[in-house]
Amino acid sequence: MIEFLLLLIFAVFFGLLLHGIHRKVIARIQKRPGPPFWQEILHTLKFSFKQTWIPRTASQVMYVAIVLIAIGIWTAALYVFCIGGSLLLIFAFYMLHKIVEHGTGLSSGSPYTKFGAIRSVMSAAAELPLLVTVSVVYLFTGTLSISGIAGWEAANVPLIGIALPAAVSLYLIILSKAHYGPFSVIEAKELVSGYWTEHFGGWRALLNIALSLKTFVLISVFIVVFIGVLPWWLFLIVMILVMVSVSFICATTPMLTPYNTVLIQTIWTGVVCLYGVIVWVVMIS
């Protein structure tokens, strides 16, 4: 338990550091100096000690509970990842994060957050390829346990080499959840900060912690499922490289309109479903 708590603290700080690297890389590509790498850690610490209250228009219990739920689901996701649990559970936690986004937006009473919340439901188009990813991984490895998948890769080949479309789907999920990305319509600037505009002070700090855990878990799962188990130092380097690649896309791609976001995600869903059917037919024949 103590080991897990230490890992949890490390994951929070490393996740925040990844968010800081993300901002720095975007800034440098756009020829701006950008904030220091550790800015998101400073942000979170600063928010933690700022004055906090609940808006009068909010559904007060929900407004607070949804923040705790966000931390709860990503802490549980980290635990499942650590014990090499089920990939299906990670998929479930990711889907439950949709409800967190939706609930955060709907609970405050603000029209900006509400539209962010509705856009989060629209971007559910990104989740269907993830289901195909899970199915394809199962078809190849015969297991949905993360430790089992890692064992299969150690005995055979990394899945990224033979199931590239599935890896791209999970990568798109990471991209769609990154700040300032082409699919980040739920926190577009025309909605101020989107679904979490009205969560400030301590609530914002807690949401930052939840999102840093989410980034840490999603990138970790991507590496273990599609590349395999690596030494810890190499694992951290690959995590940073994945984040930098996401930052590069975010820096060079404008934010899409909600319509185009859903359109692109739906087209990719069609492509990856076709791929899933082909893999299934080949595997059973």
């Binding site: 007060q60 929900m62 479930a92 936690f93 405050s108 029209p111 509400k114």
Partner: peptide, 22 residues
């Protein structure tokens, strides 16, 4: 996990008051 999540939201529906949209 799904059961726990649904139970939490049932509890929230019981004890929360509705928001006041602006």
């Amino acid at each position: 996990v799904l059961f726990g999540f649904a139970a939490v939201f049932v509890l929230l529906a019981v004890i929360s008051l509705p928001e006041k949209p602006v």
